[in-house]
Design a protein around this nucleic acid. Sequence first.
RNA 1: GGCGGGUUGGCGGAGAGGUUACGCAGCGGAUUGCAAAUCCGUGAAGACCGGUUCGAUUCCGGUACCCGCCUCCA
Length: 497
Amino acid sequence: MVEIKLTNTRTRTREPFVPLDPQDVRMYLCGPTVYDRAHLGNARPVVVFDVLYRLLRHEYGAENVTYVRNFTDVDDKINAAALARQQAGDPRSLEELIRDRTAETIGWYHADMDALGALRPSIRGVVSDAAEPRATDYIPQMIAMIAELIAKGHAYAAEGHVLFDVRSFPAYGRLSGRSVDDMIAGARVEVAPFKRDPMDFVLWKPSSAAEPGWDSPWGRGRPGWHIECSAMSAALLGDSFDIHAGGIDLQFPHHENEIAQSCCAHPQAEFAKVWLHNEMLQVEGKKMSKSLGNFFTVRDLLDQGIPGEVIRYVFLMTHYRKPMDWTAEKVREAKGHLARWHAVVGMLADGGTADAEMIELLCDDLNTPAALARLHKLSNELTANQTISERQQADFIASARLLGLLQTDTSAWDDPIARAPELTAAVERLLKVWATLRKQKDFVRADALKSDVETFGVRFRATPSGTAADFLRPADASSWGQDNIAGLKAIETRYNA
RNA sequence: GGCGGGUUGGCGGAGAGGUUACGCAGCGGAUUGCAAAUCCGUGAAGACCGGUUCGAUUCCGGUACCCGCCUCCA
């Protein structure tokens, strides 16, 4: 077995990965707050840590790896979304609206992450809802943990709130390399009068009648943001587990606070052994933000006809600990590479053996760009040979699948707009005309037809087996559709006449 | 103000103290009615200033610029 090395944020070094229990390797990834569609940035950790999950399953066996990813379904943004619906005239109760909203969002999330080829989390290889816990299903565990923190002198109740006492945990700030005093000095923290220290954070807060709430020893209320991950990871993975992952923006305060809660509640345990953080995503060199107008969701891209596999490839082009830039140029490149690989291996056969050299690259802190380069080399070797054996194809596929690529054939790439029956039919009829003209060696008219259809977004090409059409869609997909069909039909009548 | 990341050829993007990354684009060729696709071949680099070294793009120090976090955020 190849040794896996991972850069542990906690120690700031690349260290060999030694599981606590090789029979049950346990990993936790901070999942989404389910108030809206996942944006592209949400997808990066899912994809890069999906590669780690696949690698761990490959090395330790699928039934020996547990991967938990939570859904945060209690949050003020969710409340706001539900309230907005109620104010828009929805007759249902706020609680029903919240449940409805979170269930719907979880459905979207699954559909979108599935499209990116990410495996569902599992407990020892068994996929179930249990591996994707919802915060609201763990309220009793959170209350118990908070009570324990109070009993151990690490938390205190004040005015219906319960706060964590950061001064009671000397290691507070170690993960993110901050000291409590420094943070207060440069602070933009909101200081509630009942806090003992400005950096103290909320474990439990009171709910108004218009907010979701649960009964607790401190009154009706709801948990603070960080306690859910501490409670759920302990419940599902134990007080000590192997890997805790998430975006670098979660390092502080979220992960710092998780450590404080978990380590103080379970002082005999070490909580997460290895902390992994992916760097952030940018779009065309700039931070993705609504104000810059470059904000989009995974679904937006899929609807534009960018296959999930292509999105995944673009993510893997950049090492997870470096900022990743999403650009149209990368999409074009990724699509080209994948189309080529799909053509090289043809049918997607199972049963191959993944390339040892590629595995080594992945084991070196998930070096996915180098792994892709290795795949390019392998693919070049395959195409250099006149004949490619089924065995070679299967091996190549097995390698690609360790990265979550080549899992489905390119029929999944079909552009939703190009599938419109009217359009497909018109294109097919015109292709026949083109084929006939070429057969008759009437190249003048054939070329004219080709150039005509191109003005309406369809490119004809000859292939060894016949003819084919590609759909050239502009970046703004909304302008593509009826006009193109009308244009193609006009051409058709002209060439039939 | 505090903490952290980055700067590699036209572009994307890795590793390695001395030896080809890889891909895209470009260029030359094969193939093709023309294209497309495919195949073969090919030039090109490491922000700046110092230091260590026989030798640094790779290690150390400094400078500049870019980016992120410290508030909800992956």
